[in-house]
Simulated scan of single mutants.
Amino acid sequence: MKILVADDDRDMVDILSYWLKGHGYEVVRAFDGEQAIKRWRETLPDLVILDVEMPKIDGFEVCRQMRNETNSMVLILTAHDQEEDEIRGLELGADDYLRKPFSPRQLLARIKAILRRASNVRGSTNSSTITVGPFSLDAMRHEVVRDGVKIRLTPTESRLLHLLMTHTGQVLTTDMIIERVWGYDEAGDSGLVKTHIRHLRQKIEPNANQPRYITTVPGVGYTFTAPTPVES
């Protein structure tokens, strides 16, 4: 597995590179946004670890450009307690975030979970395509068609929608969604789910402010509903 580490802190990049190589990963390094985009296009890594505060081009713009061109997995690194950075990164298509400072054990757990999710999608064939109501989702291509209109999704949005559609009519708790979509055994950040649900609604709902398909069950979680067409 190939990982691109992009951070303007050279000591951080050196430490992460040494540590990741010791765990069997191939590492590509970048120290600013322009270099990150160049190295990413040259090497096509499986995962990009991306600091949001970099010179020349910041991590948000790097993430946006990556999402426009590829489905590479993206883990953003944010400063402690910078929730707005986390939300912005997720809205631009990052798959997950990790707050600095973090331990090597935390980073390894995130990397393994992200790469496992990507591997599960690539290895899935029979269950990757599903049709419910007006939606036809191809989880391999990260695309959903609604009423004949093709909508592009990020890998995480695709996994989230696939989970919801395969449990149509069932209430999924936030912890269950985190475990199934992000692969974390421990309780995760509910904001991670909330942000992705909001972004997914903006893509697939006719009116994201009045969702018909992905509805919130207050204090519990979310459910996917496919309304039955009214016969004339």
Rank of each mutant, 00 (worst) to 15 (best):
I114Q: 03
L115Y: 05
R116G: 10
R116H: 14
R117C: 00
A118N: 11
S119W: 00
V121F: 00
R122V: 13
R122F: 13
G123R: 13
S124K: 14
S124P: 06
N126P: 01
N126W: 12
S127K: 13
S127T: 14
S128W: 04
S128V: 14
T129F: 03
V132T: 12
G133A: 10
P134V: 02
S136H: 06
S136P: 02
S136E: 08
S136M: 09
L137F: 02
L137N: 00
D138R: 05
D138W: 06
D138H: 06
A139R: 07
R141P: 01
R141H: 07
H142D: 11
E143T: 12
E143G: 03
E143C: 07
E143R: 11
E143Q: 12
E143N: 06
V145K: 04
V145P: 00
R146P: 03
G148V: 07
G148K: 11
K150M: 13
K150P: 09
I151T: 12
I151V: 15
R152P: 00
R152C: 02
R152S: 15
L153N: 00
L153A: 04
L153F: 02
T154M: 07
T154S: 14
P155S: 11
P155R: 11
P155H: 08
T156Y: 02
E157L: 09
E157Y: 03
S158Y: 04
R159T: 05
R159C: 07
R159P: 02
R159S: 09
L161P: 02
